[in-house]
Amino acid sequence: MNKEKYIEDIKDIKDMMNRSSRFISLSGMSGICAGVFSLIGAYLAYETIYSDQEYFEYRWTNLTNESLIILLAIALGVILFSLITGIYFTTRKAQKINQKLWDQHTKKYLINLSIPLISGGILSLILLLEGYGGLIAPLTLIFYGLALVNGSHFTLKETRSLGIMEILLGLLATYFVGYGLIFWAIGFGLLHIIYGAFMYFNNKI
């Protein structure tokens, strides 16, 4: 009777189930980077929208066409930089743990992530153009959370609880519409950094 052998067997079974069915190369580091870029983006957006208002009071926004374009540029910049660093760290992790970056699991993960993400993105864009800018922050948080939960069956399980947190935060932000940017900074900035660090240390990479 050898306890250690069985403990190792259980570990092997879990490891094999994960490796053979999930996209496990997702790096916590990419979460941390996305969080940092989001905070920078939120700061720049803050400067653009609220440059002459009190810090902790209810906010109203007066979006001119010009500031709208700046905001979209900031958002695109955040997405682009997050994607680049995300792909970089994930590629590096895949090499380290000897996994193929692009296989059927990566594909399944991305497809399942994209469905809520793209729907939410298009919806937000339409609302923004129709003048409902205040709903953008809550909606992007909610749809991003739904995307994470939907994709979590195909990747590291931590992303599921991150998704649920984003949804809750988005719902709160819908109630406190004027504080959208703060919720946005917490959801995309802080939560990403916290979960990224957690995933990084939890998975030792």
């Binding site: 092997d12 079974i13 094999m16 189930m17 053979s20």
Partner: peptide, 14 residues
Amino acid sequence: NKVRLGIMSALVVN
């Protein structure tokens, strides 16, 4: 056997 255990673990989730 580790290999057989591995084969089964991979096949039940795929």
